[in-house]
Simulated scan of single mutants.
Amino acid sequence: MRVAVIDLGTNTFHLLIAETAGNQPEILYKTNVPVKLGEGRINDNMIIPAAFERGINCLKDFGKTITDYQVDVVRATATSAVRSAENGKDFVNAVNERTGIKIETISGDEEAELIYRGVKLSGAIQEPSLIMDIGGGSVEFILCDTEKLIWKKSYNIGAARLMQKFFKSDPLSDSEKQNMLFHIQEQLEDLFEICEKYKPQILIGSAGAFETFAELVTGKHHQNIAIEQLKMYLFNYDDYIDVALKLINSTHQQRVEMPGIIPLRVDMIVIAALITNYVLGRVKINRLMLSTYDLKMGVLASLM
C-alpha cells in the first residue's frame, strides 16, 4: 500500500510518501515547507490571512505530488497552531474545499502518542527515557521505557509562542531569559514531579531543533555526517552544551552565518536551546540523543 502522511506543524508542513509492504516502510518521497502558520498572532489564537493562504497553497502543491505518486491512503494531521486557533476550523474547511485534503486536528495527547510511536520505530528507546518534541506551538514530553509508554503531556510552550511573547532583544537579554525560564518552570511542574519518580536516564529529542543541534555539533568537528539519513544520533554532552550556550548568547546575524541552521530556525533555535538546557538541568540528565523519526513516522507506523 502506498501512503502519504502530511504533518501540518506550526512552523513547517511536511509531506512523506511511503510504500508499506513488509516490516519497514520504504520512503519514496519526503519534503517540508516553512509555511509559518503560527506567524504573527499564535498567542492570540489566530491564523493571520497571509499564513492561511500560504498553508492552502502549500497543500495544493502537496496534493499534486500525492496524485503523481498514485497514493492509496492520505492521512493529514494538524497540531498546535490549528488546534488552538479560533479560525482553525475555517482553515480545515477551506483546505478541504480547495485541495480535497481532509485534515484531522489531533489533540496534544494524540500528538504525544504519535511522537512516541515514531521514536520507538527508530530504535532509540533502549532504557528509561524522556522524549521531547519542540514544536512551534507546543512541546510534547513522553516518559517511557523499553516496554511501554508511561506518561505523556503536551504543553503550549512551543518556540513560536515563546518567541512572540518574550524574544524582543538581539541577542536575547538576561531579563528575557529569566522571564522565559520562569514561565517554563511554572508550566512544567508536573513533568518534573513525574521524572523524580521514574528517573529517566536519557533525553531523546525528536527531530526538528535536535537535528539542528546535531548539524552544529558535527560541523564543529568537521564531521561529514548526513544527519537526515540517520535514524538516531548520540550527542557528546559537552559538545551539545557548548553549542547550546553559543546559540543562546549569539546575535541573529551570528546565527545566520552558522552553517547548519536553516533560515526558519535561526531565532527559534535559541528558545529550543534554552528549554532543552533547563529540562536537562532540572531532571538531572546528562545524556542526549536525537531521533530523526518523529510524529510523521508515528503516523506512518499507525497506518502499517
Rank of each mutant, 00 (worst) to 15 (best):
K120N: 11
I103C: 09
S129W: 11
G108W: 04
I131D: 08
T99P: 02
D109A: 09
S107N: 08
E113K: 14
N93F: 10
N87C: 04
T99Q: 00
A85E: 01
A94I: 03
G123D: 13
G100N: 10
N96S: 12
G108I: 02
T77V: 12
S84H: 13
G100L: 07
T77H: 00
A124R: 14
E104P: 02
N87Q: 06
A78Y: 00
K102Y: 08
R117A: 13
P128G: 09
V119Q: 12
E127D: 11
T79V: 02
E113N: 11
T79P: 04
Q126F: 10
A94N: 03
D109C: 04
G108T: 01
S122D: 15
E127N: 08
E113P: 03
T79G: 01
E113C: 04
R117W: 08
S122W: 08
I101P: 03
S129N: 07
Q126D: 15
G108F: 02
A112F: 10
R83V: 01
A94F: 02
E111F: 04
S122Q: 12
K120G: 06
G123M: 10
L130F: 07
I125T: 08
D109L: 15
R117I: 02
T77I: 10
K102N: 14
V82F: 01
E110C: 03
Y116E: 07
V95N: 02
I125P: 08
E104G: 04
Y116D: 11
R98F: 00
E104F: 02
I125F: 08
E110L: 06
E104S: 06
G108H: 01
Y116W: 15
A78W: 01
R98A: 08
N96L: 15
D109V: 10
I101F: 03
A81H: 02
K120V: 12
R98N: 09
V95W: 05
I101Y: 06
Q126S: 15
Y116P: 10
E113Q: 14
I103T: 02
R117H: 12
A94K: 11
I106R: 02
A81D: 09
D90C: 04
R83C: 05
G123P: 05
E104R: 11
E111K: 06
N96I: 05
R98C: 06
V95L: 09
V119G: 10
L114N: 11
I115H: 07
V92M: 06
S84Q: 12
T105D: 00
I125V: 13
I115R: 10
L121W: 07
V95Y: 03
D109F: 09
S129Y: 09
S129C: 13
E113S: 09
I115L: 14
A85D: 06
G88W: 01
G100Y: 04
A112R: 01
I103R: 07
K102S: 13
E113Y: 14
L121V: 11
V92Y: 04
S122Y: 08
S107Y: 04
K120Q: 15
V82M: 13
V92T: 13
T77Y: 00
S107G: 05
A124M: 08
R83Y: 01
A112M: 07
D90S: 08
S129Q: 10
D90N: 13
S84W: 03
K89H: 09
I103N: 03
N96R: 14
E111I: 09
I131R: 11
G100K: 05
A124C: 11
A78F: 00
N87M: 05
V82E: 00
L121K: 13
L114A: 06
N93K: 13
S129T: 06
E111G: 09
T77A: 00
T99K: 06
G88D: 03
S80T: 10
